[in-house]
Design a protein around this nucleic acid. Structure first.
Length: 566
RNA sequence: UGCUCCGUGGUGUAACUGGCAACACGUCUGACUCUGGAUCAGAAGAGUUCAGGUUCGAGCCCUGACGGAGCAACCA
């Protein structure tokens, strides 16, 4: 307490999400024996995207923070859509984010036996029945959100007959689509999901784990809560669209349970990002129609895409931390994500020189054969990253946009009669320049001032602009891929009249050849990250080889000049 | 015209059991700078969808509107 009765609150509370609050309360109340156990349940039918990262961070994060566990459980109840191909990529992505499920790698298919038993049990209790009608008829009888459904003529079929039929369904005696198992709840329920939902369907399809053992497969609603129960999950966290499933989730667990423990489903808002789409289906379409170059195209919001683009796990986690978990359906500004990477890479990425659109500068008064080795700091944000030597000679490349013949006042770069510093080297003054036939600047002629060498503080001279450069005699060529937003529309799915493909940004990829980089960079390994000074953060692509280095631009630096220029 | 959920600066989130709207990003100034980056200092910007009500006092409670989203796959 301070003297003038202003209460001093020593505890600086960092706000927690409503989910975390529930967990804290449950733990304090000693619910579930004071245990917290979550799960991340991906369906192996596609690659993980940043929206999944939000769920991963929540489930693994909460377990970690409160001394619990988080299972990885593949939700593989539909062999028609799922494939092992995706299992490995999913595991890789979760690990990349830095989470560990230890030995708890489960599959919904691990529980097919138990689930089948439970279904049989429900039949025996008169709570489930086999329906012989077609999908169309069943859908029709289901009614609409505003109109109650009507009961199936098979609803009150004798238990023995249901049992017999269900076993024979699994034996493979009937065709796909000819019969389903439904749970008997309430065809007049205002909640569509409670109108005798289907829990088993016939699928004569090889399952990636159980092979041809089963001819019937459980539906999501039937499998999910039950798997949660079998695994001792305490908090089953999922996205908002499952809110209306919760009564069914609870009903099924309630009728299964043999003790006091109950998993609790809690829903949170999914991650939406501006200028992209997040649905697996749309992303799959983009891949299949070759609008992008695969799932890991650096323009994709997939985790493998972001990884290839140069995003770090830390930046993704930081971003997710910033946006939080609520029940409001929001669309998050990509600039937040971009800020998160810049912030992270600013600390981590070594600075190097890379000239994207080179133009040659000849320093006319510099000795023809002289080569100097200049020492440059690798990262002004982190001294421990040391320094490196860079060659300097009479001819260097600078960025084409760093020279203007007739510049406006605010242009602090090179122009006839003006001086700039070549970073880490000398101050040079532009005397003249030459054009090619097409009228483009071909060569710029400068003189340098020997006294202004970096580190020679006595020169005391200051210039407005500092340019990055690379020695023309030492530089190596590289390909640089510049990325822009995949869509031109903030929310490509918003306009229901227009197909989202029409909003694709035709300029989302620009490939630059003949960029000039420091020679040692040719040996950098895929995924290594650098800041090309004054240009942005770049990352070595998988396609890169020492003979033909390839870089992806993760994100440009903030550019106030570009803004002034607009 | 059913059920469920939601509605706080431009965006995303805060505000403990009601006490006079906070933070981040963005924006705009200015300082510093051998990256027009980073950093630092500061500013603008909402009176909480609307209307009633309860209360000394409401973003928080009540009622009613309005607006948005989800739900009618043998998908998850």
């Amino acid at each position: 307490m301070s003297e003038n009765n202003i209460p001093v609150n020593e505890e600086v509370k960092t706000p927690v999400s409503f989910i975390e609050q529930i967990i804290i309360d449950d733990l304090e109340a000693g619910k579930n024996g004071g245990r917290i156990h979550t799960r991340f349940p991906p369906e192996p039918n596609g690659y993980l995207h940043i929206g999944h990262a939000k769920a991963i961070c929540l489930n693994f994060g909460m377990a970690q923070k409160y001394g619990g566990k988080c299972n990885l459980r593949f939700d593989d109840t539909n062999p028609v859509k799922e494939d092992v191909e995706y299992v490995d990529s999913i595991k890789e992505d979760i690990r990349w984010l830095g989470f560990d499920w230890e030995d708890r790698e489960y599959y919904a298919s691990d529980y097919f036996g138990e689930l089948f038993e439970y279904a049989v049990d429900l039949i025996k209790r008169g709570l489930a029945y086999v329906d012989d009608q077609s999908a169309e008829i069943i859908a029709e009888q289901k009614g609409t959100p505003t109109k109650a459904g009507e009961e199936s003529p098979y609803r009150n079929r004798p238990i023995e007959e249901n049992l017999d039929l269900f076993y024979r369904m699994n034996e493979g005696e009937f065709d796909e689509g000819s019969r389903v198992l439904r749970v008997k709840i309430d065809m007049a329920s205002p909640n569509m999901h409670m109108r005798d939902p289907i829990i088993y369907r016939i699928l004569k399809k090889e399952h990636h784990r159980t092979g041809d053992k089963w001819n019937v497969y459980p539906m999501y609603d039937f499998a999910h809560g039950e798997c949660d129960y079998y695994e001792g999950i305490t908090h089953s966290l999922c996205t908002l669209e499952f809110e209306v499933h919760r009564p069914l989730y609870d009903w099924l667990v309630e009728h299964l349970k043999s003790d006091d423990y109950r998993p609790r489903q809690i829903e949170f808002n999914r991650l939406n990002l501006t200028y992209t789409v997040m649905s697996k289906r749309r992303l799959l379409e983009l891949v299949q129609e070759e609008r992008v170059k695969g799932w890991d195209d650096p323009r994709m919001p997939t985790l493998c895409g972001l990884r290839r683009r140069g995003y770090t796990p830390e930046s993704i986690k930081k971003f997710i931390d910033m946006i939080g978990y609520t029940k409001v359906e929001a669309i998050n500004d990509v600039t937040l994500l971009e800020h998160a990477v810049r912030d992270d890479l600013n600390i981590k990425a070594p600075r190097v020189f890379g000239v994207l659109n080179p133009v040659k500068v000849v320093i006319t008064n510099y000795p023809d054969d002289m080569v100097e080795e200049l020492e440059l700091i690798n990262n002004p944000e982190d001294e421990s990253m040391g320094s490196r030597k860079v060659h300097f000679c009479k001819e260097v490349y600078i960025e084409r946009e760093d020279f203007m013949e007739d510049p406006p006042n605010k242009f602090f770069r090179l122009a006839p009669g003006r001086e700039v510093r070549l970073k880490g080297a000398y101050i040079v003054k532009c005397d003249s320049f030459k054009r090619n036939k097409r009228g483009e600047i071909k060569e710029i002629y400068c003189t340098y001032d020997k006294e202004t060498k970096s580190g020679n503080e006595q020169s005391g001279r200051r210039v407005k602009g500092t340019l990055h450069w690379v020695s023309a005699r030492h530089a190596v060529d590289a390909e640089v891929r510049l990325y822009d937003r995949l869509f031109k529309h903030e929310n490509p799915l918003e306009d229901k009249e227009t197909d989202f493909r029409e909003f694709l940004n035709p300029d989302s990829l620009e490939i630059l050849e003949g960029c000039k980089i420091e020679p040692w960079l040719a040996d950098a390994k895929p995924l290594e990250k650098f800041q090309f000074q004054r240009m942005g953060y770049f990352c070595v692509d998988y396609d890169s080889t020492p003979d033909k280095p390839v870089f992806n631009r993760t994100i440009s630096l903030k550019d106030t000049w570009a803004k002034i220029n607009k």
